[in-house]
Structure formats: structure tokens, C-alpha cells
Design a protein around this nucleic acid. Structure first.
Lengths: 182, 182
DNA sequence: TTCCTAACGCTAAAAAATTGCGTTAATGTA
DNA sequence: TACATTAACGCAATTTTTTAGCGTTAGGAA
């Protein structure tokens, strides 16, 4: 659900911020299983019905919070060369996502939606945008660019796969091996 | 949770079968959101407390059912050559998983566990076993084999990635392109 | 300022999850 | 086969969560 809010200022915005903050705070304090809507509501100083009306249920609220946290705050580092740019970005991506919280964020996002317009599609776009930034920088330098979809298939997808299925830790060595395939 | 059952015969087995059947039946009739423990219990002719005691909660029950459905019933088709064996397997895999129910099964499995011994790890093993079967056949024929982990990274992982994030449909053409990279 | 109404709080009712306790039946042993 | 043991279940009471009605508050526009 997660209505896109006809009113985005004042009280409505304050409540959203309070609820998001409550989710983030409680996520660290209590386990995932103990995280309930009434608990979040109390911490945020809000009635549970407000959360139910605005987000629908817990999973959608968690997905909404997850996309906020996965939303990039800045462009990937400019290291001066396409190879090192990519390496820096991928290593950081694997680092963040492979942690228990990172994996949980991914699952929260995936569980909420099945179509492109949903949270999952947006997170997918975030990654593409970062790669696009790196690619544009590369072409500006005169380096020969890489294909973004190919980068996703060859590098990002395997990392995500192993994080989700937990059959292998995407350490630096592994990530570098993936990058070498590009 | 999903206790491994000290008693596996008689009533215990009948109830498990009834509950699993109820989940599979109701999954088609009602949507995923409407699927509740009391509803499943009623259909299975069981009290809700039985389900809660045995599986813990709905998500673990769904994961348990999902691994059963994802468990291979037979070896991949033997088409006579490694290339066609792989292609047949991958196309079928993509076909099954890219449907709404397939995607849901994947998410059910992923949501339940984070370590290798869990449902996700087992499903991962299923895929590996299939690939292993194809590889062994190939070497028996004298064909030069492929690396299983590489096949997962290059072919399976991208397919799963696009299914989960919903940013692209893994059609036949796309799958063949992935296979060509091996 | 004034109006309109989206969004919230409060409350009651419905539904789901938890727990104690007695009962049933699966499994091992004589 | 008969018996003892206890895992697993059913039932029912309790707690918690979710839903829904209705009045109130506060953005946003005229």
C-alpha cells in the first residue's frame, strides 16, 4: 500500500519521521521477531491505527523504511579510474548488504512488491544509477565504458544471490574475481 | 523452528500432510494476504495451536511447504549433450521460478532462514545437485565439464536476481544469452 | 481568515497468537 | 501381545494484534 500522501508537510511528515526512527531504533534493540506495530507505535508516540491506515501492515512499513535506508545519500567515490571506481563501489555494496541487517533490508524490500514500480524495483534502480554514474565518468575520461546490464548480471547478481541464499560469503577476493570477468 | 519431529509416523505424518495440502490448496483459492493460520487449520481439520506449536508461525510453515515444492522429484532430462542438458534445465528453472507462485516460493524460503542449514541453503543445494548431475553425465560422455559455481554465478544468479527484483523477465532469449557466456 | 478534507486519535469489536492442562496415540520394552 | 512412556494433539481461556467507526485536528487552497 504505502499511499503516496496527498499531504506531505507538517504533522504528516513529522509522524512519518517518528515512525521511521522508531523502526530503526527498535530494530537494533529487539530482534526482528519481536518487532510489532503496537510496539513501534508506542515508541513513535502514535496510535497503532495510524500506522495500519498509512502503511497497511508491518511488512509494508518495514519495506518503506528499508528503501529509505538503501537510498543512496551520495554518488560513488571518484577514484580517478573506471576499474577502481567499480571495485570501490562493488566492495562497499557487498560489505553493506552481506551483513545481517543488510540482508534483512533486502528481504524486506523484496517481500513487499512484485512489480517494477514497487520498492524492489526502486532499489534495483538505485544500483543502476550508481553504475550509470561510474559509466558516465568513465566515458568523460575517455575510457571505454562497460554495459550496465552486463555488470548487474556478472557482478551484482551473484553477490546478491549468495547473500540471500547464504551459501557463500561475498568477501573481497570473491568480488574481485567477479569484477575480473567484466 | 520447524522441529524435526521425533515421531514421524501415524498421526503426526497425517497432520503434516493435511496441513501442507491445506496450504497448497488455499494458496490457489485465496490471495497470499488472506492466508492465515486459523484458516489453514480449519481446512486441514486441525486446531490452530497445533500449527503454532509445530511450526512456530505462518512464515515458517510457508517456508516448510515451499521447500517441499521446490524439492526436485526427478533428475533433469538427459538430452544427450551437455549444452542441451544445461539449456533444458535452465529454461525450465526460469520458467518455473519466474511465475508469481515461483517467486513467492523463493521469497518464502528466503524469509525463513539466514544460515546454510536453513530452507534457503537446502534450495540452493537442490540447484547445485541438478547441475552436478548434468556435469557428471557430461564427463561420462567424455565432454569437458563446466564449473558448477561458475554456472550458478553466470546463469542462475542473474535469473534469480531479475525474478526477485522484477526489473526484467527472464525469457528464453535472455537465458540463452546467459548460457552463451559459460 | 475561512472552508474543505486528508490524516490522526480514541474506542470498541473482531481476529489472531499464546499458554495451561487434560487426552490421545506413537514408539520402545518386556 | 500387553504395558509404560511421552511426544504430539485438542480444547479452552487469556493475551495480543488487527480492523473499523466516528469525532477531532491541522494542512492546503481560496
Amino acid at each position: 500500500m504505502v499511499k503516496e500522501m496527498l499531504r506531505q508537510g507538517g504533522r504528516s511528515a513529522r509522524i512519518q519521521a517518528a515512525v521511521h526512527a522508531a523502526v530503526n531504533a527498535l530494530s537494533k534493540e529487539v530482534g526482528r521477531e519481536e518487532l510489532t506495530v503496537p510496539l513501534i507505535a508506542e515508541r513513535a508516540g502514535v496510535t497503532p491505527s495510524t500506522i495500519y491506515r498509512r502503511w497497511g501492515d508491518l511488512s509494508e512499513l518495514l519495506a518503506d523504511v528499508a528503501v529509505q535506508r538503501l537510498r543512496p545519500i551520495s554518488d560513488p567515490d571518484d577514484t580517478g579510474a573506471i576499474t577502481s571506481d567499480l571495485e570501490a563501489f562493488v566492495l562497499q555494496y557487498a560489505e553493506e548488504m552481506s551483513s545481517p541487517v543488510g540482508r534483512t533490508l533486502l528481504l524486506d524490500v523484496l517481500a513487499a512488491s512484485s512489480d517494477v514500480s514497487g520498492p524492489a524495483g526502486r532499489c534495483c534502480q538505485y544500483t543502476k544509477q550508481h553504475l550509470e554514474t561510474i559509466r558516465i565518468r568513465a566515458t568523460a575520461r575517455g575510457e571505454d565504458a562497460f554495459d550496465i546490464n552486463e555488470a548487474i548480471d556478472v557482478v551484482i547478481a551473484p553477490i546478491v544471490y549468495h547473500i540471500l541464499f547464504g551459501d557463500r560469503a561475498p568477501d573481497e577476493e570473491y568480488c574481485r574475481a567477479l569484477l575480473a570477468r567484466l
